[in-house]
Computed example of a mutant assay.
Amino acid sequence: MTTTASPTSVPERLLRSSARHSYDPEVDIDWDAPVDPTLWGMQPERMSLYGTDLWEGLTQEQRITLSHHEVASIASVGLWFELILMQMMLRDAYDDDPTAAHMHYALTEVADECRHSTMFGKSIAHFGVPAYGPPAKVHRLGRLFNAVVRGPSAYASILVAEEILDTWQREVMKDERVQPVTRMVARIHVLEEARHMTFARDEVRRQVADLSGLALLKQQVLTAQTCFMVARSLVNPEIYRAVGIDPRVGRRAALGNPHYRATMQWMGEKPLAFLRENRLLPAHQERTWRGALLLG
Results as ranks from 00 to 15, higher is better:
L49F: 10
S212Y: 08
V148E: 01
A72E: 09
P25C: 15
L79V: 14
E176F: 15
H69I: 04
G213C: 06
V204F: 14
P130E: 05
A253N: 11
G128A: 11
E26T: 14
V204E: 08
A33R: 14
V178C: 08
A224C: 03
P44V: 09
E26Q: 12
A106E: 12
V138Q: 02
L255N: 06
G57M: 03
R177G: 12
A131L: 14
R13I: 08
P247V: 01
N257W: 06
D92V: 06
P44A: 10
T263Q: 06
L255W: 09
V149Y: 02
P247F: 03
R248G: 07
E192Q: 07
H21Y: 05
G213M: 01
D53T: 14
L79A: 15
H104D: 00
H196F: 01
A215Q: 12
A154P: 08
V149C: 02
A161K: 09
V178P: 13
T4E: 12
G128M: 10
L217C: 02
Q285L: 10
L295A: 02
R232D: 07
G41M: 04
V243D: 04
E163L: 09
V160K: 01
E109P: 08
Q62W: 00
L293F: 05
P237H: 07
P180C: 11
S67E: 02
R13Y: 09
S18T: 14
F274L: 08
A242H: 10
M229K: 05
E163Y: 11
D166E: 11
H21M: 06
Q265E: 12
S22G: 03
Q219S: 05
H259C: 01
C227H: 00
P11D: 00
V172F: 03
M103F: 04
Q219D: 02
R170A: 05
R241A: 07
H102S: 12
F199Q: 07
K122N: 13
T198Q: 02
T263R: 04
P7H: 07
D95S: 14
A200H: 08
L255G: 10
F274K: 09
V221I: 02
P25M: 09
M173K: 14
S67D: 03
P25E: 13
Y105K: 02
